[in-house]
Design a protein around this nucleic acid. Sequence first.
DNA 1: GTAGGGTTAG
Length: 600
Amino acid sequence: MNVFQSLKSSGAELNSVVYNTVLDACVECSKLEKAEAWMEQMKKDGMSDVVSYNTLIKAHLQAGHMGKARALVEEMRVAQLQPNCITFNEIVNATVSSPDRRVRAEVWKVIQEMQAAGVKPNQVTCSILLKNLNGSSPESDINHTMQLINDMEEQLDEVLLSSVVEACVRIGKPDLLNTKLRQLMSGDIKVNGSHTFGSLIKAYGHARDMKSVWRCWKEMRTRHIKPTSITVGCMIEAVVSNGDPDGAWHLIQELGEDPHCKGILNAVIYCSVLKGFTREKNAGKVWSVYEEMQKRNIDLSIVTYNTLLDCCARCCRMDGVPDILADMKKANIKPNIITYSTMLKGHCQVGDLSAAFKLVKEMREEAGLVPDEIMYNSLLDGCAQSSLVDEGLRVLREMEEAGVKPSNFTLSVLVKLMSRARRVDQAFDLVKELSGKYHLSPNSHVYANLVQACCFSKQLQRGIKTLEEMMERKVQPDKRTYSMLFRTAVQQCQFDKVDGLMRGALGLSGALPFLSNRSLATCPGIEEVAVSETLSSMASSPEGNKVAAGLLVDLRKEKPSVRVDPTVQRCVLQGGQPPQSWTQERRSSKGKGRALVFAP
DNA sequence: GTAGGGTTAG
């Protein structure tokens, strides 16, 4: 205001740009009333224009006042000022980022309104819409947004390219991500920003395309585009999550020797590699990374410490916990609920439930924290792992009394708890009771565990009945669900059941009637695991082999694209015995005995 | 002078 006044008194000619700058200053400082008063002044001085209105609209939207923003758009029209692309983009942005689901659902109406006003959606509009897409977005929203991008007159720019790949990653459909990456990268958009390189590296990482990840990284480096901490964070995370923490660690050390880059290494970057070594259960390497972080004077956050504690938990090295807690204390960082929850999981992992319960007590007393849903889930899971049914039920009651709402995750853990104790009826009862009480619709994980409970106690028919219920409730089964049913049916020599189930799972003719809805009954990835596994295990009895042969013939006829291992084909079609390695069950490396691994 | 993009923990 002072600068404006001195400009005015200097006698210089004032224009709307100067007035608008003052208005924006009010808005950026969240002085809504001042902004409104200033706008009135501008109108009096004849200085208000489209930009002024857009700026004031921004202020109302920041304050969450969609109605006031709308009223200003009307006022613009009355004042013969046409709302432009920026006006509508502000409204679109506020719509998609509204906390209210009903407002978010209105976004396509706003777009229509924009088009009706003769304003074409542009790159900015599209990137705003993309921000709204995630794993639970309806197919129609995804298609609609992508169509709008295709229909756009302008070329894609760098920000939009980055927004598209980011959205594809969040949506989580690998095919879509791959298609878009290919489509975008075949165009001639020159990538210059470290932002964009970060997004691309992340996207290629999710697509498991490490060749392209490294290609992007090297291109960025050879063109001397300086990565930021976040770019490096994306890169290290991509390398680690594709199973190469050593490669990531090597890259960090290389950057640490580069005088231009060593300053950008931060705790987030180190965190990814800590996580990677933890997954490999290599506590030794975790400690050496931690040592180097300390040597380099990296600022550690609560996240870093929690990651280190997670290493202790997952590597079953709870002896390392006291040192880390002491370091936290030295750094003046207070443990939060995640800290306690991580340690709790570690105690559960090694079957030390009394330490787990003691920790909860400590947390309440020393930190004044109360357990949340995730913590209760971990406790329940610990009880399930240790087959402590009554303790588990007590935890559930406590959870309810504390007003912590169970989720489907909770239900799935409870089913596991009951399943272990062979209390199949109670597993079903609990799901029924809690899903009613808390308005939950059981998801595929809950059902998978129910099916597992049935199979575990040799109640094949009940397992199949549960699958039927899944179809009625429109829940798509996963590979595990089918795999358990196939295996149990084969063990019980119920080959007609195997036949009907397998045809349903693969979308072949002759499926059990309730599996006739193909898009619901089939499940991606079923071919690789269940077909080879089940067909070969059936081949060892003549009756089973007959069914297996029929399945194989129809599979090749109706789904020629499905690849079946030649060894399996030979042993089924020639009626031979499968090689030893195909029928031998092996426990998965985690020792939880869930997945069956067959070594060809 | 007004609108859009990237990283870590239970």
